[in-house]
Design a protein around this nucleic acid. Structure first.
Lengths: 127, 127
DNA sequence: TCAAAAAGTAAACTAAAGCTAACTTTTTTG
DNA sequence: CAAAAAAGTTAGCTTTAGTTTACTTTTTGA
């Protein structure tokens, strides 16, 4: 899995986040969290399964594979760094920081992310 | 025209940029600049025509309408602000700044863009 | 001036990602 | 424990945006 779409990255991220507050993540949980239909989720999960990023028995809960977990954490980490930067450095509101971080996290390069992290570190804004 | 896809914004932007160094912008110019096929360009132009953002007679050159020009300039302006910020503030390389600006310009909110502009102004980095 | 090259278009295919309607399976609960 | 509710899936539609192949139109230059 070298390339993932923004959409599939979002699914992994939300599964990761939901997992932190519930024992098992299901299609309906994801659909509600992302405000999309259940069939859309089912199809996305199928695609993630094909890429060995999640495991799910038919009608069962969705579990991230180690690789899926790795990708999800990577995306979520980018999200948190960007959100912090937008809020603390650019003075953007909570809500906008959340929304924009969620979009920028999918398109930003490694180099720019590192620039952001370096900036936060230099200014003593801890992660 | 309240909402434009990232792709269509890119077409408007590239037409605007090409126009600065050539008298008439054609399908082939755009295809080469964006490294995509000519039929892809033709279809995108058709969509922009439907939205009254460009004018083109059959087999003719492509011209931005005043509204198209307004949108193109808005996108390109975002691009320049972001590129400058990435380079001057985050210390990102020329090439990466160009690439990332080109992606972030389509997803960033007004509020965050204003935060970026304010930051540049505060630090005396002139536009 | 007319034939070849270049430019532009049309048609049809593909993939991603959303949707609804209708179905099956599982869970809950009276 | 069986019926209803909830959860999950399937099938088929839509849009966007890329592709290739094959066509038409325009431009150019020997």
């Amino acid at each position: 899995m070298q390339y993932l779409t923004a959409s599939l990255e979002d699914y992994l991220e939300i599964i990761h986040i939901l997992r932190q507050s519930m024992s098992g993540v299901g299609v309906t949980d994801i659909a509600k969290a992302m405000d999309i239909s259940k069939p859309s989720v089912t199809r996305a999960i199928k695609s993630l399964k094909n890429n060995s990023l999640v495991i799910q028995e038919k009608y069962g809960k969705i579990i991230l594979t180690p690789e899926g977990e790795r990708v999800a954490e990577s995306v979520y980490s980018r999200h948190k760094v960007l959100r912090k930067f937008l809020k603390e450095v650019l003075g953007v509101s909570e809500g906008t920081a959340e929304i924009d971080a969620c979009k920028i996290e999918h398109v930003i390069s490694k180099e720019t992310l590192e620039g952001v992290e370096k900036f936060l570190k230099n200014y003593g804004i801890e992660g």
